[in-house]
Simulated scan of single mutants.
Amino acid sequence: MPHALRDAQPASGRASLYAEITTRIIAELEAGRLPWVQPWGGADTASLGLPRNASSGRPYSGINVLILWGAVFAGGFSGQTWLTYRQAQALGGTVRRGERGTTIVYAARFVPDRERLRAREEGETAQPIPFLKRFTVFNTDQCDGLPENIAPMPPPIPAGLILPRAEALIRASGVEVRIGGDRAFYHLQHDCVQVPAPQSFFEPVNWHRTALHELGHSTGHPSRLGRDLSGAFGSRKYAFEELVAEIASAFLCAALGIVPTVRHADYIGTWLEVLREDDRAIVRAASQASRAADYLLACLPEGTMPGREEEGGGDRGDG
């Protein structure tokens, strides 16, 4: 991925950061690239996995995954571990002179004093508003003097174990998965996933990528995360939910060590419409995709997969 998601420069106003991120995602989509899958397209990329903080070991989530995957690809870094400047110093290391950091974001909510006053006067509940805060991290490849094996990424899962783990996740989810037919979809009323037989795919690994995409949709069921799944085919709601499921599938594949081929960008046009209409849509979609992936990964036996937290703690927010 080019520098589209790297080295964001300061901009004025809280809303500008949403616009900045959205503009860069749009540029990638207009070029026919999917920011959530391209980092795994070459032989020289870093090991598969979710980016994590090298000091705390906590994986990043939401839009930060896309930003950091892009930075790994653009910078040719060998790993997915990151530190702030102060964290590198605290570990006895240093960021090399001249290295440029990557700007990521912390999402939270706050209630302005004016809104608090209005709610008190009208006897209503004060409504918080979302905001993004910037901070800068450096890949551990950009640092010197760090202790060895600082929060190392887990080794790739051997090829023979990838599919069983994905199948175990599907079973643990409790969602009925029906195999057969020539279409892949999630049926909300029946709460089941339909996926063609594995032998229908040119590469068997893509059966799992497809199943995880549809399983991502299933997390929107009212008994789970309760997303709005009412969008009719071709609508903005439908396109947004497809975006959530597509990114959730990418997050799940990375967490499970699966490297599927790039999915045909069926929905790029409608995704672009959604992003151009709402510059917070990609942040919301990535946040909801993280929640969907977290929900499904939590179905695995305790200790099988690590939890996710954003740098700095607190509520990640919807953006």
Rank of each mutant, 00 (worst) to 15 (best):
P2V: 04
A4I: 04
R6W: 08
R14M: 10
A15Y: 08
S16E: 12
I21A: 01
T22C: 07
I26Q: 11
I26V: 12
E30D: 11
A31P: 02
L34C: 14
W36G: 04
V37A: 12
Q38N: 02
S47E: 13
S47V: 10
S47R: 08
L50H: 07
P51G: 03
N53Q: 03
S55W: 03
R58W: 01
P59I: 06
P59F: 09
Y60F: 05
Y60Q: 01
N64R: 02
V65F: 09
L66G: 06
W69I: 08
A71P: 02
A74H: 06
G76L: 09
S78H: 05
Q80R: 15
W82A: 09
R86Y: 03
Q87K: 06
A88E: 05
V95T: 06
R100D: 10
G101Y: 04
T103Y: 02
I104S: 00
Y106S: 08
R109Q: 15
F110L: 11
P112D: 07
E124G: 15
T125D: 07
T125P: 06
T125A: 12
Q127F: 12
I129K: 14
I129R: 15
F131P: 03
V137N: 06
F138Q: 10
N139C: 04
T140Q: 10
D141Y: 03
G145V: 13
I150N: 08
A151D: 05
P152L: 13
M153V: 10
I157Q: 11
G160T: 15
I162S: 13
A166I: 15
I170F: 10
R171T: 14
S173D: 07
V175P: 03
V177N: 05
R178L: 12
G181H: 08
G181M: 09
G181Y: 06
D182I: 11
D182V: 08
R183A: 04
F185C: 03
F185H: 10
Y186M: 01
Q189E: 13
P196Y: 09
P196F: 04
P196V: 05
S200R: 10
V205P: 15
T210H: 04
H213G: 04
H221T: 08
G226Q: 15
G231Y: 09
G234V: 03
S235R: 08
R236A: 11
K237R: 13
Y238T: 02
A239E: 10
E241R: 05
E241G: 05
L243C: 01
V244Y: 00
I247K: 01
A248V: 03
A250N: 12
P260Q: 08
T261Y: 15
V262I: 15
A265R: 14
A265G: 11
D266K: 07
W271A: 01
L275P: 06
R276H: 03
D278G: 04
D279N: 13
I282E: 00
A285Q: 06
A285Y: 03
A289W: 00
S290M: 01
R291S: 07
A292Y: 02
Y295A: 13
Y295R: 04
P301I: 02
P301S: 12
G303C: 14
T304W: 10
R308W: 00
R308V: 00
E311F: 01
G312N: 03
D315Y: 04
G317E: 00
G317W: 00
G319A: 07
